[in-house]
Design a protein around this nucleic acid. Structure first.
Lengths: 135, 135
DNA sequence: CCTTGCTTTAGAGCGCGCTCAAAGCTGTAG
DNA sequence: CTACAGCTTTGAGCGCGCTCTAAAGCAAGG
């Protein structure tokens, strides 16, 4: 029941390309990925979970350099837990800020859409409909 | 009362660098920026408003190529209003999707923070406090 | 045995969005 | 008159995050 994944399978499962998975390992985001007798990567369940967590950091805009720092702390063991928590809390604040910006700009864009709708209406009225007023 | 801005002033007002303002003009995001007798740019209020709108599109993740498309449509006049509205509505959907992703990932990150807090608590208890039970 | 398709590595290449540099002109202060 | 700062253009450069290539090894099917 100990699931193992080839790089291909992990790529499918995560949506990252095999190139990106190897790249992440090369720069140290993934460490100690086990190999089979031919040197092929064999990812474990724990690797899948870690990659998924990395994707959440990336997907919320954390730069790779910061992910690397986090990853390095993780390799150092439990003594770095406080620092890791602080990193995540700082990142949390960034995410809140992103959401705020999105909300604000969304409002302006909504307004612009409404503005265009108004103009479209006017354009239609400019050529008055031929519908007879009575039956 | 017709405000005009040098590139420097517009840079301050918008937060974009003067390099970026010139770059935007070069690639066609800003068109017809007026010049003084020496060829210096003199932005009008309408240019400021347009730049601010561009920044909202960028700030919500629209690629430059798409902004260019939008900008070109705008130059073509009122006949492109429907297409512009449709572009904004498509972009609106992207923004909603971004917000959804942020919310989802934020939850996971919150969980991880809580998990770390739990571990930090355990670590503190591992060395039991010397506080006497009674006064 | 041979082809097809996977894997490995190291290193090069790329698209995006700026960002800077070079060379020259203008305007202002001392 | 001379600095110095800011403007112009064209074109090159850069940091990020992948993405791809080359050269070689391994494995399953016909």
């Amino acid at each position: 029941m100990e699931n193992q994944y080839t790089i291909q399978k992990l790529s499918q499962k995560t949506g990252l390309s095999v190139h990106t998975l190897r790249y992440y390992e090369r720069i140290g985001l993934l460490e100690g990925v086990p190999r089979d007798e031919h040197g092929y990567r064999l990812y474990r369940e724990s690797d899948l979970l870690w990659v998924e967590f990395l994707m959440r950091l990336r997907g919320t805009g954390m730069p790779i350099s910061e992910m690397k720092r986090f990853s390095d702390l993780r390799s150092e063991g439990d003594s770095t837990i406080t620092e890791r928590r602080e990193m995540l809390e700082a990142h949390q604040a960034h995410i809140y800020e992103q959401m705020r910006v999105l909300r604000d700009h969304l409002r302006s864009i909504d307004d612009k859409i409404d503005h265009y709708k108004g103009m479209e209406k006017e354009q239609n009225q400019a050529v008055p409909p031929k519908v007879p007023s009575g039956k």
